[in-house]
Nucleic acid binder design. Structure first.
Length: 417
RNA sequence: GGGGGGGUGCCCGAGUGGCCAAAGGGAGCAGACUGUAAAUCUGUCGGCGCAGCCUACGGAGGUUCAAAUCCUCCCCCCCCCA
């Protein structure tokens, strides 16, 4: 039998719950606190209040965001209370975590729109009926100056500068605004407001999460424990998944696109993706890992399975199977996709029934400019009906183009009407 | 408040009157090779129907035949001192 921090005996089902919660998490602090909380919660018949704060800074959520959402959903599944805080107020401040520069600040309207899509998309992972959904503007916006000052008094400048990204920026003579200093304090105050028992976040949030503990104590509350999950690496295999790096897979990406993006990840991400994104059990994950290592499970195959699984999660089985078949068709059998986006041949680019190809490609949105189109053609990246176009200044008759399939690079297809 | 250093293309960064659409690197894009993987190699990387022209080196003016480079004012950032 295992013991919590206080030496309390943990019944085996709680021990199992604890183990499952630890799966796919990085730091669970302070040591042993969570187990104690689980035991106590059980004894008192009071579910834990599990806080997750998200700033609606991006219009869409991607798989990177779902890692922590899944963890929250897991707590939910064990009967705890998910407290989801939409940081409508903090989004206007801008979390400096992991940033080398100050974040651009968003307008209230943008935040509102983002918040709405966020909740909509989070519903794909969380049971929203049971979520306690709040907005931190509700308590942060009305704070008076004396209350703000009380909050700032809880923390020293030296403590702030301990934070890795601040320290780095300070050392490199990069600006840090006072506003950014405020961010961790506000996030900590959220914990006070919702009386969190535990707060979840990515590993980059560790400092902020711990700050919440200090602030709660300063406000006379029992400090929350914290649980961090790894940052998901994006499709480039290097940087964390983020819209601004263009290495993300959105939960609302259409099935085909989602499938394709998963296929493009480097091999070393296969296992982490299985572990963090699919809800696979520990045993399943180990199996994948072993198979890959032993060479009995081909990486390309593993990625197909992974992609299918993820598409199933967000679009259903049927869509997933279709996406897989389509993928094989285009990239294995090298055929055209079954469904190609269609567009009318824009008439404004016609001149006496003929079109200058670069202009057509631009008009139809396949490339950004005529110059780019010319470059791509010169490099053999443009095809019409599977035939590489050689002439940079090709003039084509409209009749010839209607019904033809334009292809730019490997993945951009368009059929003209 | 005083003194000093800076702002160059998506990012980093060289460039101090013409040879600068601006070196070099990274990212991106295309091609080859593959498993739409990685690695590698090649090319490309502001716009324009393009051997030419237009727009661009924080902003606005000015000097000059010629300005990223010189001058004036303004904006922004960093450091030291207070």
């Amino acid at each position: 039998m295992e013991q919590g921090l206080s030496g309390t005996q943990a019944p085996s089902e709680i021990w199992e719950e604890y183990q499952e919660l630890l799966l796919g998490s990085v730091d669970v602090l302070p040591e042993g606190a969570l187990l104690d909380q689980l035991i106590k919660a059980r004894k008192e018949g009071r579910p834990l209040r599990v806080k997750l704060g998200v700033d609606p800074t991006a219009p869409d959520i991607h798989l990177g965001h779902t890692v922590v959402l899944r963890k929250l959903a897991q707590f939910q599944a064990f009967g705890h209370t998910a407290v989801l805080i939409i940081g409508d107020f903090t989004a206007r401040v801008g979390d400096p975590s992991g940033r080398s520069k100050a974040r651009p600040r968003l307008s209230a309207e943008e935040i509102e729109v983002n918040a709405r899509t966020y909740v909509e998309q989070a519903a794909k992972v969380l049971d929203m009926d049971k979520v306690e959904l709040t907005r931190n503007g509700d308590w942060l916006a009305p704070l008076r100056m004396d209350e703000v000052l009380r909050l700032t008094a809880t923390t020293t400048v030296a403590r702030m500068l301990e934070r890795d990204d601040f320290a780095k920026r300070y050392a490199e003579n990069e600006p840090i605004s006072m506003l950014e200093f405020m961010y961790p304090l506000l996030q900590g105050y959220d914990s006070v407001a919702v009386r969190a028992d535990i707060e979840l976040g990515g590993t980059d949030q560790k400092f902020n999460l711990l700050m919440g503990r200090n602030i709660m104590e300063a406000y006379g509350l029992p400090p929350q424990s914290i649980l961090t999950v790894p940052l998901l690496v994006g499709t480039d295999g290097e940087q964390k998944m983020s819209k601004s790096y263009g290495n993300y897979i959105g939960v609302s990406d259409p099935p085909g696109e989602m499938f394709g993006k998963v296929m493009s990840i480097p091999d070393h991400l296969i296992v982490p993706y299985f572990e963090l994104l699919t809800g696979a059990s520990l045993r399943e994950v180990r199996e994948v890992e072993r198979g890959l290592e032993a060479g009995t499970y081909h990486p390309a195959q593993a990625k197909r399975d992974l992609a299918e699984r993820l598409v199933t999660l967000y679009h259903g089985t049927e869509a997933a199977q279709k996406a897989r078949a389509e993928f094989d068709r285009v990239f294995k059998e090298k055929e055209q996709p079954e469904t190609i986006e269609e567009r009318d041949l824009p008439t404004e680019v016609l001149k006496e029934g003929r079109v200058w190809l670069p202009r057509l490609l631009t008009a139809v949105g396949l490339v950004g400019s005529n110059s780019e189109a010319r470059r791509l053609i010169a490099q053999g990246g443009v095809r019409i009906d599977d035939e590489v176009v050689v002439d940079v200044d090709a003039e084509l008759a409209a009749d010839r183009l209607r019904g033809a399939v334009l292809r730019v690079g490997k993945r951009k297809f368009l059929r003209l009407r």
